[in-house]
Design a protein around this nucleic acid. Structure first.
Lengths: 223, 223
DNA sequence: GCCGAATTTATACGATCGTATAATTAGGGG
DNA sequence: CCCCTAATTATACGATCGTATAAATTCGGC
């Protein structure tokens, strides 16, 4: 397939006029390169995120990458970290918009976790690409563990508050197990829905997730 | 990093004696190449599964691959299909060893789904590599959907049988939703345990899964 | 025991990749 | 307004990748 890909000349056509450019601050350029990297990985897989493609997407020449990142591996790791923290922060922001009632808060969080924009094939592809390297890459594993625990701990807090508001015991051992299971449930639903959007298009995923959580906690979350 | 990798000469040192070889049947050689491909992807990611590396692992020269597979993409797709059906068949074989009592069967299936050898970082890496291409590759998506539904339908049958044996209603709509949620729960636990083996080493995952399933079905599965 | 078809090896090619380095340009401080 | 530093482009290099094709070897059928 390699030889059949469209030939893209790396040389400029005529000769002289150098490409004009504007200077940008370090943070801005790094962010643009990270965005370009994530977009490419999401759209066409990690193998499509070549130095040249990333530079082109960021509207920059390839050499500049080396000016901001020592190596391509370095850029990939930084991009992954940005993705993870971005998702976590998005979840945190959503949490702030939820009501005060603990049960409604938990229900809202659960429903949001299996609804757009979280259930997005692009995000799933990025996540899968990252997971694939987690067993082999120490930095990736650390980043994954941190974000996984951040999400799970938040879920555990919501579960504990909901149980207490219903006058139910909420000892740490039990709520931790429930958070692990609940997190796994949301992960699995998210993954499958993103992987097979057509198959899940006629399924009310938030309702299904809320029903399952209600059974898991023996606490009615559906309205 | 590329320039620092150990230089591996592709030429033979002296000159003359051609490498001797033994002929093998088509099925045997294809299986060897598929195994080599899966091993490499699991160990070092898809980018390590080059034609040359696959051939070396299968103790064969690179050219032979083209004799059995039209293209590398073809080999990858066939290897992925072999992986998926292999996992499904392994699960089916395990199912046959379970007892006759429907509740015990369900419990055994659930516990086995989050125990070795299913929870294996190698398998997870392979699965993640496959998932990553599912949104973009039609053949991959079809293969994934088939194996996903095969597993889920089996789980739904087990759930329905267990519910009925307890004198509980088991209409298709309910059991299907329970199977979707249960499948997601098992998927999520499997993934996280494989991704963070150290973090889950002190957690009794089968017990946690059985507890969660018991709550989900309101049916005691633990012994 | 040899002959022929199929398997397997050997070699080569063009493309692309990541990286290195030098040349140039932009834009702010004096 | 000019210069000086840093940002950016341009070009080149070696390595490796997937693929193509020809030569050689194996081994079962006669």
């Amino acid at each position: 397939m390699q030889t059949l890909e469209p030939r893209v000349s790396e040389q400029r056509s005529g000769s002289l006029p150098r490409r004009s450019f504007q200077r940008a601050g370090e943070g801005e350029r790094r962010a643009a390169l990270i965005n370009a990297t994530l977009e490419l990985i999401a759209e066409a897989g990690p193998e499509a995120a070549t130095v040249r493609a990333i530079a082109a997407r960021a509207d920059v020449t390839p050499g500049l990458i080396r000016h901001y990142f020592a190596t391509k591996e370095d850029l990939i790791a930084v991009a992954h970290e940005a993705l993870m923290t971005g998702l976590t922060e998005a979840a945190a922001a959503r949490l702030d918009q939820l009501p005060d009632d603990p049960i409604a808060r938990l229900a809202g969080f659960v429903a949001a976790s299996v609804s757009p924009p979280v259930t997005d094939p692009r995000a799933m592809a990025l996540w899968a690409a990252a997971m694939q390297t987690v067993p082999r890459d120490k930095a990736m594993r650390a980043a994954h563990e941190a974000t996984y625990l951040a999400f799970r701990d938040r879920l555990q807090d919501l579960i504990a508050a909901a149980l207490r508001s219903a006058g139910r015991p909420a000892d740490p051992r039990t709520t931790r197990a429930l958070a692990i299971a609940g997190n796994a449930l949301l992960d699995g639903l998210w993954i499958e829905a993103a992987a097979l959007p057509d198959h899940f298009s006629d399924i009310d995923l938030p309702r299904l997730a809320l029903s399952a959580f209600s059974r898991l906690l023996d606490l009615p979350l559906e309205d």
